[in-house]
């Protein structure tokens, strides 16, 4: 495997929720054009850490983040950084599909509109179609772009959310257990999609399912009780874990 650019460099990251110490001194480097999986038992902090990467934790009043997180060598927690601009670069897809109560078209067009990415209506149409194609949803919805996004099936909704996220041309795509609310067929579709997305984006995915991590990711980080226990190539983690906790988890003894 050839050496890739590092997208995110995280050093000594601590997260507190009020008095609870949720993330303890995590160091991790996330590569560009790679799928990185965060695995670990419930409550281990993997989602919290993911939300640090685009400052979604800012919306939670009691949350405090310390340490150094750099995107392309820029500190994203620097006081001059506008989280709005950051999030345009670091998109996010959530656990439960959360399409806006608007039409499919408006759902996808929302990001480009607010970031001023399209020159005109035609440009917007183009972005919407391109994004829906990227999310492998175009053929299913092209005839009903003006129907509510909430009327789609669960799997379609989640792909719509992915289309919505890629429409803003982010550099990194964060996915917080994107398949946990989906059935196996929809899951397979989304996983296939993730594999294609990595050609353009750096993808970070939080998942409960070790199989999913093994299937889609190239790098895997194992979190346990707020600590980053092990971070390595996915193959190494699953075939030759260094830490006994990792081994216990992937063999199903803790979790």
């Amino acid at each position: 495997m050839d050496q890739k650019d590092i997208k995110f460099r995280c050093h000594g990251v601590q997260v507190y929720y009020g008095d609870t110490h949720a993330i303890k001194d995590v160091d991790v480097d996330i590569e560009d054009k790679t799928v990185t999986a965060f695995i670990g038992p419930s409550g281990c902090g993997k989602s919290t850490f993911l939300r640090c990467l685009n400052r979604m934790n800012d919306t939670i009043a009691s949350c405090r983040v310390e340490g150094d997180i750099r995107l392309d060598d820029e500190d994203i927690y620097h006081r001059d950084v506008d989280p709005v601009q950051l999030r345009a670069k670091v998109g996010m897809v959530f656990q439960k599909p959360n399409p806006f109560p608007k039409s499919i078209y408006d759902n996808v067009a929302y990001g480009p509109k607010i970031h001023g990415l399209a020159k005109n209506k035609a440009g917007l149409d183009e972005i919407v179609e391109k994004s829906l194609r990227r999310a492998a949803l175009w053929d299913e919805v092209k005839d009903r772009l003006d129907t509510p996004g909430t009327g789609l099936s669960g799997g379609q909704q989640q792909r719509l959310c992915i289309a919505r996220a890629v429409a803003t041309e982010p550099e990194v795509l964060l996915m917080d257990e994107p398949c946990s609310a989906l059935d196996p067929i929809a899951t397979a579709q989304v996983e296939e999609l993730i594999d294609e997305l990595k050609q353009r984006f750096s993808v970070v995915i939080v998942t409960h399912s070790m199989q999913q991590a093994a299937r889609v990711s190239q790098k895997t980080a194992f979190f346990h009780l707020g600590n980053l226990v092990e971070y390595d190539d996915t193959n190494s983690i699953f075939t030759n874990p260094q830490d006994p906790r990792t081994e216990s988890y992937i063999t199903g003894r803790i979790g």
């Binding site: 999030r87 345009a88 959530f94 806006f100 929302y110 990001g111 959310c161 996220a165």
Partner: peptide
């Protein structure tokens, strides 16, 4: 829904 929108940089 708010998270979805913030996540897009709104």
């Amino acid at each position: 829904l708010r998270d979805g929108s913030f996540g897009l940089g709104a």
